[in-house]
Amino acid sequence: MNKKIAHYIKTHEEELLEDWIKHMKENSDERMISTVSSQMYYNTSKEFLDIIVSSFLDTNDKYNEKVANFSENIVRLGWQITFLTKGIRAVSLIIYNRMIDEGNYTPEEVNQLLFDFDKWLTPIYNQLIEAYSATWERTVSLQKIALQELSAPLIPVFDKITIMPLVGTIDTERARLIMENLLTGVVKHRAEVVLIDITGVPVVDTMVAHHIIQAADAVRLVGAKCMLVGIRPEIAQTIVSLGINLNQITTTSTLRKGIEAALAFTNRKIVSLEV
Rank of each mutant, 00 (worst) to 15 (best):
9 I>V: 10
92 S>V: 09
260 E>N: 12
106 T>H: 13
188 K>Y: 02
165 P>I: 03
125 Y>D: 04
26 E>P: 02
116 D>L: 00
62 K>S: 15
63 Y>V: 13
266 T>G: 08
131 A>S: 04
149 E>R: 05
224 A>M: 00
125 Y>T: 01
201 V>N: 00
248 Q>W: 12
207 M>P: 01
241 S>I: 10
63 Y>P: 09
169 T>C: 10
195 L>W: 08
82 T>W: 10
120 W>N: 04
223 G>L: 11
53 V>Q: 04
203 V>N: 00
46 K>A: 04
152 A>C: 11
195 L>A: 01
21 I>C: 03
121 L>K: 06
192 E>F: 10
93 L>C: 06
179 M>L: 15
67 V>A: 02
79 W>R: 01
81 I>L: 14
140 V>H: 10
81 I>P: 07
227 M>N: 12
243 G>N: 08
209 A>D: 01
209 A>M: 02
184 T>K: 14
11 T>N: 11
266 T>S: 10
90 A>W: 10
34 S>A: 12
37 S>C: 02
255 L>A: 05
78 G>D: 07
267 N>V: 05
78 G>E: 03
248 Q>N: 13
104 N>C: 07
180 E>C: 09
57 L>H: 11
177 L>G: 04
72 E>W: 08
264 A>Q: 10
198 I>F: 03
149 E>Q: 11
92 S>C: 13
158 F>C: 04
26 E>G: 03
11 T>L: 13
38 S>N: 15
9 I>T: 05
223 G>E: 12
272 S>K: 15
233 P>F: 06
252 T>Y: 05
169 T>L: 14
44 T>D: 11
222 V>G: 10
143 Q>W: 05
49 L>K: 01
180 E>T: 08
9 I>D: 04
93 L>A: 14
124 I>M: 00
111 N>K: 15
273 L>S: 13
240 V>E: 00
51 I>A: 02
120 W>M: 09
137 E>M: 14
125 Y>A: 05
235 I>V: 13
190 R>D: 09
215 A>L: 08
22 K>R: 15
179 M>V: 11
86 K>Y: 11
14 E>W: 01
147 L>W: 03
142 L>F: 06
253 S>R: 12
123 P>Q: 07
159 D>L: 01
66 K>E: 02
17 L>P: 00
48 F>V: 06
